[in-house]
Structures are given as C-alpha cells and as structure tokens.
Design a protein around this nucleic acid. Structure first.
Lengths: 99, 99
DNA sequence: TTCTTTGTTCGTAATATACCGAACAAATGT
DNA sequence: ACATTTGTTCGGTATATTACGAACAAAGAA
C-alpha cells in the first residue's frame, strides 16, 4: 500500500493541536491550566463571559484534541492539562519554529 | 475607560496565530516556508491535492494572520515567511508552553 | 425522597470554513 | 494586438463552528 502523501502525519497532528488552540477562550483555559495544576469548570464559568454550555463545548474540544483531561471529583469535575500530549504539542511547535 | 477583560490581548493574539495554523495545508506551507527561504504558489499547486483557488484562500488566510507575505515577482508571486510575526508567534507559543 | 449543585447534551440559529470550477485581472510573450 | 501564464475573486454548496437557553443526568445535601 503505497501512499503518496504530501502532508505528513506530523503536520496533521500539529494542525490538530493548533486548531484546538485557535480560540481565545480555549487559549485562556490552556494557559490557566498549564500554569496552575488544575481547575473546576465552575470557576471558569464565573470568570468567562459565556454560557456554561458553551464553555462545556470548548472544554470538550480541548479534551477531544487531547490537550486537557477531566477527572470526576464529585460533584464537580476537575480539569487538568494532559501532560503527555501537552509535551508532544510543545515539541511539535518547537520543531516547527526552530526549523 | 476601565475594561474588565478576562482574556488578555496576548491570548487573543496567540489564538489568532493558532487558528491560522489549524489546517494541514496551511501547516504544510508554513513548515515549507520556514525551512527554505521562499516559494511560488504554482509550486504548491502541483504538490498539493487542492484546486489553485482553494490554495489561494489558504495563502490569504496566512497572509491575513501575518504569518506569510507575498512579493510580486512577475508574472508570479513569491511567498515568504513574515519573519517578524513568525518570531512573535514563536515567542508567544514558547511562553505558553514554558509556563 | 426531594432539593440543590454541577456539568453535559439537545435543539436551534447565525456565522465561518473549506472546497470547487468559472470568470476575471495583470503582466509577459509572440 | 492577441495569446499565455499566474494567481485572485466570484458564486455556489456542504459542512463546521460558535453561541445560547432549556432540558437532562448524576451525585451529594437536607
């Protein structure tokens, strides 16, 4: 199975991370979580000028992209950076910029 | 004029760059241009599996985001990285990941 | 059990993105 | 002047994104 791909898997992956980071709200969340350990989405709802359902969607996108992870800490959910993928993204972007 | 902003200008800017990078085609172009000096869009049309009009739109987005710049070299247009903004983006992402 | 808290999912609407081919514009070549 | 090359813009369509409030689900508190 010969695939003549012009776009590499790495580029696809980097683009996927970039897309997830491509919104101010999500950037805000990522920066917050990368600095402090974790947070609850309730905290974010208070700080941010959006409905909780909207925030939920943004968090889902970040989760789907693998950049954050949620841990149930009833009755709330504690969100943290997904350190493994965060590191991967860090590396991908570093490679992109340092080339 | 007191503005209670939760999202910083820096985060907006980083998100804008990230959004522009959030597509495989655009990531391909950015990586190519960051490595070599410049290229012509005709070269890209041959390599990439998209119509030239579609490519033109992607290039426009990268230009609007300030990541690349086009220089007329008739009858073609030579595209290069916008080094100044590329550096800014590099810095913004480095700060994001290193915090 | 019933109420409250917390966050997701649903339904919906407005806007944005991605893509194509056709038409167009600008400049060079014949 | 006319044809060719190169890339943008236009018109259209399909899909994705962003946003909201309402409804829902899960789990602890009264």
């Amino acid at each position: 199975m010969v695939k003549k791909e012009t776009i590499t898997e790495k580029q696809e992956k980097t683009a996927r991370y970039a897309k997830a980071m491509g919104h101010p709200i999500r950037m805000y969340v990522l920066e917050l979580l990368s600095k402090q350990s974790c947070c609850y989405s309730g905290d974010l709802t208070e700080e941010l000028p959006i409905a909780k359902s909207t925030l939920s969607q943004h968090l889902k996108e970040l989760k789907d992209a693998g950049l954050i992870q949620g841990e149930i800490e009833a009755p709330r959910i504690k969100y943290c950076i997904n350190r493994e993928n965060w590191k991967e993204a860090q590396l991908l972007f570093r490679e992109l910029f340092e080339s």
